[in-house]
Nucleic acid binder design. Structure first.
Lengths: 147, 147
DNA sequence: TTGGGTGCAAATGTTTTGCAGCGAT
DNA sequence: ATCGCTGCAAAACATTTGCACCCAA
């Protein structure tokens, strides 16, 4: 190895911070880095993400709006996704380990992981919706015929 | 309304059948229709899917390989996804309703749905893997740096 | 000097839209 | 006639790769 990455430590810091968002899209990471004075190419962020995932430091999160997000790997948890504004937050995982085992025995699969996404409307959007219905812009259409 | 859809009933039939795959990508649907002698444009499949989802008849399934799949809406269930070959199957949902309620009370979100995907290796890939490691092609890279 | 990191541009893969024509009501 | 269904082509998006260059070890 002949050169330490300049962006990787900064990206790690973002993912480990308790700032919002909890899980970052590649574009959000690029913008956040820019605000910290570190301009960088999208493809660099991309390659760093791929490497970080391969190394087990980052974890991809897919919620169905067409963009992959990334979060720091430590500690498994579920996700809460607001279908109205796209907010994503972490919630503790309540699944019993016995469930995992039951699925393995019942299906013959070897389960490595699971992803649980609760989909709904966040408190803020609930308030906005009741006060002025349809007043805020819909989610970017993204890459899904479902939205 | 001035014209009944020719493809919609056929597509519904595919999604309701017990044939594999359990959940279909748009391209798989187009190919299956072609085999049934009904050639159609990808965009027609796409628009039909969007409409069917809006009407609540179909449900999108997102597993993180970059393609949205669709399944018939009746009856909620979880999914089992083979990270090696991309197979996707349905498994009964074991989540207690109390969990749903607990999340709502704990977060202030209004939960409309959840999606649970068990990720692992299917029995067939487990066998293939142990017999001839790395012998089969990896998943198509799709649209995700994580795979 | 070498091997990985970076930027830029181009290529992919999938989804989405524009537009013209068709056809059942 | 109308209004939704269709096909074709092009656009939009997010992701991925090719290639040249840079730079700390």
């Amino acid at each position: 190895m002949a050169r330490p990455s300049k962006i990787r430590p900064q990206l790690d810091a973002l993912l480990r911070s308790h700032r919002q968002p909890h899980a970052w899209t590649l574009e959000e990471l690029r913008e956040a880095l820019g605000r910290r004075g570190l301009r960088s190419a999208f493809s660099s962020i991309f390659r760093t993400a791929r490497q970080a995932v391969a190394q087990g430091d980052w974890q991809p999160v897919v919620v169905g709006d067409g963009k992959t997000r990334f979060e720091w790997s430590g500690g498994h948890h579920d996700h809460l996704f607001c279908q109205s504004c796209g907010a994503l937050e972490a919630v503790p995982c309540r699944l019993a380990l016995s469930l995992h085992n039951r699925i393995e025995r019942g299906t013959g699969y070897r389960i490595h992981d699971h992803s649980m996404v609760w989909e709904g409307t966040c408190p803020r959007c609930i308030r906005n919706r009741s006060r002025r219905a349809h007043d805020h812009p819909p989610l970017p259409s993204g890459a899904h015929p479902s939205r």
